[in-house]
Design a protein around this nucleic acid. Sequence first.
DNA 1: GCCGATACGTGCGTCAGCGCACAGACGCGG
DNA 2: CCGCGTCTGTGCGCTGACGCACGTATCGGC
Lengths: 240, 240
Amino acid sequence: MIDESHDPRTNLLLAALPDAEWLRWQSQIEAVDMPLGQVLCESGRTLSHVYFPTTAIVSLLYVMENGASAEIAVVGNEGIVGISLFMGGESTTSRTVVQSAGQGFRLKAKVMKDEFDRAGPVLHLLLRYTQALITQMSQTAVCNRHHSLDQQLCRWLLLSLDRLQGDELNMTQELIANMLGVRREGVTESALNLQRAGLIRYARGHIKILDREGLEQRSCECYEVVREEYRRLLPSTPAR
Amino acid sequence: MIDESHDPRTNLLLAALPDAEWLRWQSQIEAVDMPLGQVLCESGRTLSHVYFPTTAIVSLLYVMENGASAEIAVVGNEGIVGISLFMGGESTTSRTVVQSAGQGFRLKAKVMKDEFDRAGPVLHLLLRYTQALITQMSQTAVCNRHHSLDQQLCRWLLLSLDRLQGDELNMTQELIANMLGVRREGVTESALNLQRAGLIRYARGHIKILDREGLEQRSCECYEVVREEYRRLLPSTPAR
DNA sequence: GCCGATACGTGCGTCAGCGCACAGACGCGG
DNA sequence: CCGCGTCTGTGCGCTGACGCACGTATCGGC
């Protein structure tokens, strides 16, 4: 069941499991492909599994009545998708969708709940992760209120980058616009700014980061705050 | 220690405790006054207590480097202040401040943690509350992105109203502006709109709600979503 | 090597919210 | 009842983002 070329413990939560739990989980865990755009869970629906992305990135996206949307938070190899399962609510008001194709692992809902209810290290690990996620959501709220699109785009690129290996993203501006909850044209303009400044280069849905330092400079404080909080709360953070 | 005229179980989480836990807590719980503007916990600091507001309202406020601020969520008699204590992070990136003066109860951090770690009904109750709070934060992010100040003001008034008894608020427009993360003049204008429409009446920091129906109509969907989620996740919600 | 689909660029009028500056208006203490 | 501080109203120029419309470039497939 476990593919050699694809180590579950690339996911940092899985990596942080004590040996005892890891042994139990190994037989239950299942590798999955996560293609771009896949909806893991529709808003208001109950999850069948929790997901541990390894190379994929997942967005928590709120879709409004009129169709407009906004990303609430993003989950990569540092986290888990489906916290509502152990938080007790079963469902969320947001949609869970794969923002960057890749792989991950999943665990049946029932198994996850049982593990959580052992009230041991798994519980504490997951709750600390949840708090980090809460910080990310808070910061998203603040950022939406106060920062320019340029700054937000930087933050978003950096958050995505931290959850991938390498310095490239596959993302159309249209998609980014959906995530940020802004116009596609706005993203075009901001991306142009960044490109002109020599920070990124892109073409047809492929973005290459040229100057990460520069992006961090140009980003709002939100990125650093979130990153620092993940570092503080979790065993280790995605490689820079 | 317990003041007759002030029933702890006005707080809905306390009210939802099973008898066994309630008996244990009764001797530990302490009544506190919560004056307007009191900072229960500064961002990044560790809480000494968790708070259960009864008649007070508390805001989770993020204050940026440049001094601008934005409310992340609001907690009243339906909730608890200090979730980071049991989530495991000890501190939050946001400041906790009393937005509407009133009373509440508190419990020492250590006691709270021990109770949580019993991994019984208290844990599940608090986690469900936390998920409701997460929904509120998400919705704040979305609302900040997409909705007009008029709509947001309605949402904010309604959320506050749900956490108080009666139909009056004591709140200057300046304060509301800080919470919403907008200009004071903007609030003046929106408040005027609502007043002209006959929905509210106010003067010098005192707001009276005249037409709650109307406020709900004029509000964005965010209010209803949050309220519905609180209803779904928690034993009972603040009286309407 | 052409064609359609997809991705990106640009221009233009509009508007909500910002920053600033200042003017009434109410209310409390001396 | 006078005066000062607080709260609220208003005007004005500015800017970032919006909605819409259309132009251009690049890719993949037949």
